[in-house]
Write a protein that binds this DNA or RNA. Structure first.
Length: 646
RNA sequence: GCUGUUGUAGCUCAGGGGUAGAGCACUUCCUUGGUAAGGAAGAGGUCGUGAGUUCAAUUCUCAUCAACAGCUCCA
């Protein structure tokens, strides 16, 4: 008999050789039907694999991340089985689970696969899934494995086998298909109820462009049809919310080939949105003791040689700007921090002056690879809501906490309620690649961990993810469609104070080196606005909406009244437009609704006579007539409370 | 940067070896209309750019640029 420890701490005896599935059955049949895999002593196993020693057990279902990835990995095998049935002789690369689904890289020889073929493959997969083929695990000696794939003439699997140790090789077979695979897999194919092959793409073998290009088929599967429907709905919704599409429709920004790739042009409405966001953060920063600074868009190359950025990124960046003066070279600034270091140095600092918090909406230029440019999320010129905090080592934690507060305030104000924080620390053992003393690193890492804990953040710790110059905390937010985006970041830096020889005079009258914190709650305005557009589907909260109110005169008889109302709105700093086109009211309302403008005022002779405005709220409809003062009050209330749209 | 797909009016798109079409937007006129599309007329395009094949290229071929998707990258 062996002892199995359950997640709740309960320990129960079982026959040696029992499987997780057997154990699930002993609890309830319903549970057994849901089990996809199991975590045995922290390792994910097949639910059917015999357990021979004492172990801790956690059953994995569709609700667990590992359950899902096992499910999708098994689906990749099902895809392979279907492909082999339809296209005999297909060579297989790798077929892993990914964040949302799975893919399989295949070599079809001279054959081309089309979208229509995918539909056929889906049908075949569904047919094979119904057979409830068991995923059979088998240990295979290396020689036998090589012989198998030699016979199958599959060069990719042979390539994979070269790197595997004899005695640790396993095959999985389901139905007619056998694959080299570490596993684990779901009990049988019948769990896969809903199948969607989403796209075909090229991908190099082992991700190396020197290798052959394989065909990659992406897919996603679900344990029931409803989840697939939801997934398809989200895909469609994501398409509708795409910031590139909405940016064009709502006249927020554009690009011009003449101006250059990845260099966004902000249209008046987009610029208004940007300025509202900046004003919002500026106010919050002012309240938190930040000092605004302004620095130029270029800087001497020497500045970046000093900072070390030139050495690290110089070749891959915009090349230096030359001047008529021989030997002078300038760089478009890729970062604001070196400039800010020089501002810090402009006057001697006492320990009493610290922390010094320098803030700037600094526009930086980075030569992103051509293929990486994407809407506003990856551009070559963008504005960081940057700030650098210069503090004493003993102030790091307190400053960190304050920055966390600021970031959370920003998220809350913009209605991002679901976020996690990733703490990126040094490699656990290898410390060779980091700059700064161990004592300072320990201090900073502790500071981050403690502040995150004290703020009650939902955190993930990642080792070996720190920058060479210091540990960091990144905020990942989930948008309204559940997609994750990395936004704000807080980083500790020991490198730049060293390189720029920053100092302060301590209470001991000795020179000391300050610690620097980089932080950006938005990250970049471009990227943040892109995420915001998709999060709110273009329906900005009133406090950000480029146009808050659209006035719709019923006919030109009401034009004068609209202009009178306009005067008063202007005095109250409300952003409005008048639709004075020769159109009927229904048409004006429709166009304004589609432009996602929060409020409409329908103004006719009736309103003029009663001295009121007839208010209509975007996507809610008519909310009745009221005196103008009351409407203005309503707007101001909504702006001040930063209520989210809808 | 690599691979694939695409490039026709401001936008969304149809077409196709004999120099172009729709809807929306725009202009003018009629209409002065009450809570999601009133009517008519008009204007607007070297069919991404360059070269080749052809009597003839926007259409076919090649190159190039850009967008999109994927891969690699991101201070």
């Amino acid at each position: 008999m062996i002892n199995i420890t359950f997640p709740d701490g309960a320990v129960r005896p079982y026959e040696a050789g029992v499987s997780a599935l057997d154990i699930a059955k002993s609890i309830s049949e319903g549970l057994a039907r849901k089990v996809l895999a199991a975590k045995i002593n922290g390792e994910v196993w097949d639910a059917t694999r015999p357990i021979k020693t004492d172990a801790t057990l956690q059953l994995l279902t569709w609700d667990d991340l590992e359950g899902k990835s096992t499910f999708w990995h098994s689906s990749a095998h099902l895809l392979a089985e279907a492909l082999e049935a339809i296209f005999p002789g297909t060579k297989f690369g790798i077929g892993p689970a990914i964040e949302k689904g799975f893919y399989y890289d295949i070599d079809l020889g001279d054959r081309q696969i089309t979208e229509e073929d995918l539909r056929k493959v889906e049908v075949k997969m569904a047919e094979l899934a119904k057979k409830a083929s068991v995923y059979q695990r088998r240990d295979v000696p290396k020689a036998e494995a090589l012989a198998y794939f030699n016979a199958k003439e599959d060069p990719y699997k042979i390539d994979l086998l070269q790197n595997l140790e004899d005695g640790k090789i396993t095959f999985y077979t389901q139905g007619q298909f056998t694959d080299l695979c570490r596993g684990p897999h779901i009990p049988n194919t019948s769990f896969i109820k809903a199948i969607k092959l989403t796209s075909i793409a090229g991908a190099y073998w082992r991700g190396d462009e020197k290798n052959k290009m394989l065909t990659r088929i992406y897919g996603v599967t679900f344990p029931n049809a409803k989840e697939l429907e939801e997934y398809l709905y989200l895909l469609e919704e994501a398409k509708k919310r795409d910031h590139r599409k909405l940016g064009k429709e709502l006249e927020l920004f554009t690009f011009s080939e003449k101006v250059g790739l990845g260099l966004p042009l902000w249209l008046p409405k987009g610029a208004m949105l940007r300025e509202r966001l900046q004003a919002f953060l500026q106010k919050a920063q002012m309240d938190s003791g930040y000092l605004p600074v302004v620095t130029p868009h270029i800087g001497s190359k020497q500045l970046y040689v000093t900072s070390g950025h030139y050495e690290k990124y110089g070749k891959d960046s915009f090349q230096p700007i030359h001047t008529p003066e021989e030997g002078e070279e300038f760089l478009l600034k890729p970062m604001n921090c070196p400039h800010h270091c020089e501002i810090y140095k402009a006057s001697p600092k006492s320990y009493k002056d610290l922390p010094v918090r320098l803030a700037e909406f600094g526009t930086v230029y980075r030569y992103e690879q051509h293929g990486e440019l994407h809407g506003l999320t990856r551009v070559r010129g963008f504005t960081q809501d940057d700030a650098h905090l210069f503090c004493r080592p003993d102030q790091v934690k307190e400053e960190f906490m304050k920055v966390i507060d600021l970031v959370l305030y920003v998220f809350k104000s913009l209605n991002f309620t679901d976020y996690t924080a990733q703490i990126s620390l040094r490699h656990q053992t290898d410390r060779s690649k980091y700059i700064g003393t161990d004592a300072n690193w320990d201090l900073a890492e502790q500071a981050i961990i403690e502040s995150a804990a004290e703020k009650g953040l939902n955190t993930v710790v990642e080792y070996d993810e720190a920058a060479f110059y210091g540990p960091k905390l990144d905020f990942m937010v989930k948008d309204a469609l559940g997609r994750k985006w990395q936004l704000g970041t807080i980083q500790v830096d020991y490198n730049l104070p060293e390189r720029f020889e920053l100092e302060y005079i301590g209470a001991d009258n000795q020179k000391h080196r300050p610690v620097m914190l980089h932080r950006a709650p938005f990250g970049s305005l471009e990227r943040f606005i892109a995420v915001l557009i998709e999060h709110v589907a273009g329906k900005f909260p009133l406090w950000l909406a480029p146009v808050q109110v659209k006035m719709l005169p019923i006919s030109d008889k009401s034009q004068a009244y609209a202009e009178k109302v306009a005067e008063l709105l202007k005095k109250s700093e409300i952003r409005f437009e008048i639709d004075d086109r020769n159109e009927k009211i229904g048409k004006k309302i429709r166009d304004t609704e589609l432009a996602k403008i929060p409020y409409m005022l329908v103004l006719g002779e009736k309103e003029a006579a009663d001295n009121v405005v007839a208010v209509r709220r975007q996507s809610k409809g008519d909310i009745g007539a009221m005196p103008l003062e009351q409407f203005i009050h309503l707007i101001q209330e909504e702006v001040n409370s930063r209520i989210a749209a809808e």
